[in-house]
Simulated assay, not measured.
Amino acid sequence: MTPSARLQAAIELLDEIIVAARDNGASGDNIAKRFFKARRYAGSKDRRAVREHVYTAIRRFGDRPENGRAAMVGLATEQPELQELFDGSAYGPAALTDSELRASGETIPDWLLDRFAALIDGNEQAVLFDRAPLDIRLNPKKGDAKTIEAAWPEIEALPLPNAYRLPTGTNVENDKQYNGGEIEIQDLGSQAIVAACLPSAPKLVLDMCAGAGGKTLGLAAQLPDDARIIAADTDRGRLSRIEPRLRRSGARNIVTVLLSPNKEEEALGPFKGKCDLVLVDAPCTGTGTWRRNPELRWRMTSKRLDQTTKLQARLLELASNMVAPGGRLVYAVCSLLDAEGGDQAEAFLKNHPKWRDIEVDLPIGRPYRKGTLLTPYQDGTDGFYFTCLEKL
């Protein structure tokens, strides 16, 4: 592919990502996989160049552009070398005109800026779009530090037990340590939330929004085998992805439960008031994961944020009903917005006098509004807010 053809391909791929973001469709990564699968003539250098154009545009513009061409024209305004590629050639984009739609604006949409946690200053905002690191978690029931340190001499130990960082781009999924269940890929922030769950020794654990089971497996790796762990979710596809991970990890104390949206309490009835620990890793806007998923900004609207916070409040209430007296509830979001973090925790505590927040002693994170805030700039993690609550 010529440089101009690569730019045109980037415009076409951006068109699909923009429509999906508007209509809450497939993720950009999945769209890109399908896009290149249908264009097998594109070599590895072509795919890499197209992706670079696409994700540079996604990171640059906080507001969703009208279309892929507007995104790339806006980028070309700031990168003059791109203007030459709008050459009207057979497979390239049409020549630029004075009346072109051009994407513009800041990296964070204006309507969102004042909704971030108070601690998110200019330094914090500047790294929200950096490339995320590759963190792994050692499964102490199947592996040991010496083995993985020998496998990757460049590995870096992180400040939580069993947490390590590898150079970005390291391919671990084809490695025997990964396939043998000795390690799992997991951001340090997610590992911190698991650590916050474990000062006590719970016998019955409910991971109420388990998804593909990353935190479920983290809990299983740390708890004794006689602890019973329930992994529940409303998304059948996401929940099904825990099965191969379970087989690799060797965990035998995890049971999956598929929930029906808005009818979760029916399936969770047997656990009502009996759980020593409930983890709610609630659905959220994902503002803390923009390093990995910058297109999430293009999916966000004030209406969707309002719908999400209402769902979070409902799930937090439901989770509280599952906790036994003296038990704990950990509420977490991969978001840096107050509406999804501190606001939720403080509103819950205000309306539930028989609950209290518990201070968590971790080597990372900052105390913030009845909980803990983790950020890319301060902690080198994805952005998270979590709170640990106890039922009196």
Score class of each variant (00 low, 15 high):
residue 1 M to T: 13
residue 1 M to N: 09
residue 5 A to T: 11
residue 8 Q to P: 02
residue 24 N to F: 13
residue 27 S to F: 06
residue 38 A to Y: 05
residue 45 K to S: 13
residue 52 E to N: 14
residue 52 E to M: 00
residue 55 Y to D: 10
residue 64 R to E: 03
residue 66 E to G: 08
residue 72 M to A: 07
residue 74 G to T: 03
residue 84 E to W: 02
residue 85 L to E: 07
residue 87 D to S: 08
residue 92 G to F: 10
residue 99 S to T: 15
residue 100 E to T: 13
residue 101 L to M: 06
residue 106 E to D: 12
residue 113 L to Q: 15
residue 115 R to G: 09
residue 119 L to A: 15
residue 120 I to C: 04
residue 125 Q to H: 05
residue 126 A to F: 00
residue 139 N to A: 02
residue 143 G to Y: 03
residue 144 D to P: 00
residue 145 A to C: 01
residue 149 E to A: 08
residue 160 L to P: 09
residue 160 L to C: 08
residue 161 P to M: 08
residue 162 N to R: 12
residue 165 R to G: 05
residue 170 T to R: 07
residue 171 N to S: 08
residue 176 K to E: 14
residue 181 G to Y: 03
residue 183 I to Q: 07
residue 188 L to D: 08
residue 190 S to E: 04
residue 191 Q to L: 04
residue 192 A to L: 05
residue 193 I to Y: 02
residue 194 V to H: 04
residue 200 S to W: 01
residue 202 P to G: 07
residue 203 K to P: 00
residue 205 V to I: 14
residue 205 V to M: 06
residue 208 M to Q: 13
residue 209 C to Y: 07
residue 210 A to K: 06
residue 214 G to E: 02
residue 216 T to S: 15
residue 222 Q to T: 09
residue 223 L to G: 13
residue 225 D to G: 13
residue 230 I to G: 03
residue 233 D to M: 04
residue 234 T to Y: 02
residue 236 R to S: 14
residue 244 P to V: 06
residue 245 R to Q: 14
residue 249 S to D: 07
residue 259 L to P: 03
residue 264 E to F: 01
residue 267 A to Y: 01
residue 272 K to M: 03
residue 273 G to I: 02
residue 278 V to Q: 08
residue 280 V to C: 11
residue 280 V to W: 02
residue 280 V to D: 06
residue 286 G to Y: 01
residue 290 W to I: 01
residue 295 E to W: 01
residue 302 S to G: 00
residue 304 R to D: 11
residue 305 L to M: 12
residue 305 L to Y: 03
residue 308 T to L: 12
residue 313 A to P: 02
residue 318 L to D: 06
residue 320 S to D: 06
residue 323 V to P: 04
residue 331 Y to A: 07
residue 337 L to G: 08
residue 340 E to G: 12
residue 344 Q to N: 10
residue 347 A to T: 09
residue 348 F to T: 04
residue 359 E to A: 12
residue 361 D to M: 03
residue 371 G to W: 02
residue 378 Q to W: 00
residue 386 F to I: 07
residue 387 T to V: 13
residue 392 L to P: 00
